[in-house]
């Protein structure tokens, strides 16, 4: 009963072991590389709302209106380092509205009133044009409609406001509904590192 393994048995075991090892490696490789890991991102140089040179065009609000979420995962973000802290910010005020008694536009641009304006630094009580202002976007209200982005774009503004995908909100759909309709192919999926 105690039969010695033949050479054929030894070679067979070795071949099966090698095959199992190879399959394991292949499965591991496929797990690592077979699926594309990535995240949706807005290319600001492509997006019509922020792309320089695109003047006299309508605001694109597809990010706000086509995301599957009730409130889009796209938000406007103000880069405070680039912001001019202007007295009259064309992204905050509707500069086409009537001028009020303070000499300021009487209406705000954001339809959701998502931008707040604060005086910063030393405040001149006599002349509000003498002050610097910080413009803060309320992410709870903002739906990424892009109106403020377009209004802040150079040469009218300093292009300090841009649209960004909030990855903590984004469902990361493989077939993102915004990307499907973005007229400028600015909504792109990029591999994460």
């Amino acid at each position: 009963m105690n039969e010695e393994p033949t050479r054929r048995d030894v070679l067979g075991h070795a071949a099966r072991g090698a095959a199992l090892l190879g399959m394991g490696g292949l499965i591991g490789y496929l797990i690592k590389h077979g699926s594309v890991e990535g995240a949706w991102r807005i290319n600001v140089d492509q997006c019509v709302n922020s792309r320089l040179g695109a003047l006299g065009v309508d605001v694109c609000d597809k990010c706000a209106t086509t995301c599957v979420l009730a409130l889009s995962a796209v938000r406007a973000v103000n880069d405070h380092a680039a912001c001019g802290r202007c007295y009259i910010c064309p992204a905050y005020f509707d500069v086409n509205s009537a001028i009020n008694e303070e000499g300021l536009p009487s209406a705000k641009l954001c339809p959701r009133d998502a931008i707040e304006r604060f005086e910063i630094g030393w405040v001149d009580p006599d002349d509000p044009a003498n002050n610097y202002y910080e413009y803060v976007i309320d992410e709870v209200k903002c739906n990424g409609c892009g109106r403020c982005v377009m209004a802040c774009k150079e040469p009218a503004g300093l292009s300090s406001i841009r649209l960004e995908v909030r990855h903590d909100l984004c469902l990361d759909c493989n077939r993102c509904s915004i990307a499907q309709v973005c007229p400028d192919d600015a909504y792109i999926r990029e591999p994460t590192t």
Binding site: G84, C86, I88, V95, L104, P105, A156, L158
Partner: peptide, 15 residues
């Protein structure tokens, strides 16, 4: 000078 958008007598925009 003063801020204005619809009137050409003033200056529009941020700056």
């Amino acid at each position: 000078g003063h801020f204005a958008t619809k009137s050409e007598r003033g200056f529009p925009g941020c700056c």
